[in-house]
Each structure stands twice: as C-alpha cells, then as structure tokens.
Design a protein around this nucleic acid. Structure first.
Length: 295
DNA sequence: GGTAGACCTGGACGC
DNA sequence: GCGTCCAGGTCTACC
C-alpha cells in the first residue's frame, strides 16, 4: 500500500535525506539507485514495519506493509511529515540567501530542510553519540544500540527499529559500556532513557513551537551529556536556527574562511554568522565551504 | 564566568 | 603485535 503526502515547494527528497549524516545511521537507509529513503518504524501499536519513501510530483510517496491499519498509517504520515519537514516554510530564509553568493543556490536546489528522527528521544540519543567521537564512532555506537536493543523487523530480523526509552531504560550502564561500547556516554544515554521512560522528562513536548528558543535551549542543556554543541544541533532539528552548533569542524572551516587558518574560538564562529539572526544556524549549515575545505 | 583535567574509543604511528 | 599519542564535546571541581 502507498500513501502520498504533499510538501511545501521547493522540495527535494534527496536534498533532505542528504542534508547531514542521519541518513546513514540505523534504522535509516538510503538507496542511491532508486533515490529512496527507508526507515524501520515502530508505531504506537508496537508493530515493526519498514517504510520506503520516494519523491512524487507534489511531495513524497510512502510505501509500507499492506496490513497496516488506518491509525497506524495516520501515525506514520505524521511522523514522515515531521522527519522530512514537509510543511516547513523557508521562504524568508531563501529571500536572504538569494543575496549571498555562498547560499544563493539553496532555493533552486531545494536545500534547507534537515532530516530528523521521528522522535526527539531518538535525535537526542544520536546527538549525544556524535559528541567527542569520530563519525565512524557514531555509526558504530548507533548500530550497536539498534542491533542490541531495537525490536526486529519480522520480514528481516537483521533490521531493527530504534530502541524505545523503555527498552534502553531496562538495561544498565555496565552493559551499555561493555556491549554497545558507548564509553563514558553510557550513563548519559541511560539517564535520558530512564527520565523519558518514567515520565520525569517529557522530551516530545519540546517540539512545541510555543516554547521560546531561549527556554528550549535551557531545557536541552539541563540534560546530562548535552552541552552547547549538542543543544544547538537539537535546536536546529527542532527548526530553531538561532545558534550555531560549534564543533571542531566548524572552528576549522570558519578559521580558513575568514581568519586565514589562525586558531579561533566559539565566539568567532557565532560572530561570523551574527548577521543571519534567527537563520544563523541554517546559514552555517548550508554555507558553501568549498574554498575553506580546500585550504 | 572562565579554565583545567578527566572521561572512552578507535585510528594512526613508531618500534 | 604492542605501546603511545591524538582527536572528538561535556562534565566537574576549582578559582
């Protein structure tokens, strides 16, 4: 069975899927030959299903198991709309980007949306697993979490859903260290899972657009394991672009773009994009760094 | 508010 | 094959 969802133009599935590395983290998958994005989902019914998303004339077409119920389809439609930001309106940003040579191509290429997970819990855990490690390390840790704690897809048990807060909360720090090899991040992931599982932390409520960005950032920073970089990254996933996720790569790029390769700090990165105001993070994210990266 | 050191892991490197 | 060094953000203790 298939379901069509409209997207606010301009839209490109490839542009969203490849907006950052999330597409290569389980349980996502990207097939270059068919230009399709897959995801092993687990709606509230508890059933594990694979959904395959392809671009259509007006948005996307979702393909999934024929036996899905109407409520399950409804839930999947809502989640896909969130994951791909189908309704996001970036017209104000495009108006500004048109005047900047390093960003002028974005609207034509339908770039600007950032791929996210269906839940903020999943994005939170994955973001913690991007900190203080290489990208290969992030892939390894996420793969380990999904393969060891995620519910299997009945038609292909080698593929699994992302573990729920309850599933991760049921394990212990030592196991996360020794088997999933999360290192010192293990207690952070465990505490996050337990806080969400017990209801102490209502993470998904942070998706509400009514929460001021400053307040949202404060709440994210209160989560152990989430510092300034991770909070800015999560704010970006929540559609708040007021902060730049400054990591070592950002320092290097901004240094070569504007400071002749000299050592710089977080302040210089923020300053470099200050003029972009509420679009600061997005301008940084999609900046054409080709000249800086060749330096 | 700012800073130093510890936290883990895997990869690169030298022997 | 083994040991050492390094890169990657966040936390805690301390000033």
């Amino acid at each position: 069975m298939t379901l069509d969802l409209p997207a606010r133009p301009p839209f490109s599935l490839r542009a969203v899927a490849r907006s950052h590395g999330w597409f290569s983290l389980a349980p996502y998958g990207w097939d270059d030959s068919t230009e399709s994005l897959s995801y092993v989902a687990r709606p509230g019914s508890g059933r594990v299903v694979e959904i395959v998303i392809q671009e259509s004339a007006s948005g996307v077409r979702i393909q999934a198991d024929d036996s899905l119920s109407e409520p399950e389809w409804g839930e999947i439609a809502d989640r896909v709309a969130w994951m791909l930001g189908l309704e996001q309106d970036l017209s104000t940003f495009y108006d500004l980007a048109r005047k900047e040579p390093k960003l002028a191509h974005l609207e034509e290429q339908a770039q600007g949306r950032i791929l996210r997970s269906p839940t903020l819990f999943e994005d939170g855990v994955k973001t913690i697993l991007t900190t203080n490690t290489s990208w290969a390390g992030t892939i390894r840790m996420v793969t380990a979490l999904v393969s060891q704690y995620g519910a299997p897809l009945p038609s292909d048990p080698s593929r699994r859903a992302f573990p729920s807060p309850n599933e991760l909360a049921a394990t212990d720090e030592q196991t996360l260290r020794s088997e999933a090899r999360l290192g010192y991040r293990a207690p952070f992931v465990l505490e996050l899972a337990r806080s969400v599982a017990t209801g102490i932390l209502d993470l998904e409520s942070l998706r509400s657009p009514s929460i001021p960005t400053a307040e949202l950032r404060k709440r994210l920073l209160a989560i152990k394991g989430i510092g300034e970089y991770a909070a800015a990254s999560l704010l970006m996933l929540l559609g708040r672009y007021d902060f730049v996720p400054v990591d070592s790569w950002a320092l290097n790029m901004v240094s070569h773009e504007w400071y002749e390769g000299q050592p710089i700090g977080r302040g210089e990165v923020e300053q470099a994009f200050e003029q972009w105001g509420e679009w600061k993070g997005l301008a940084y994210w999609f900046w054409d760094w080709s000249s800086a990266s060749q330096a």
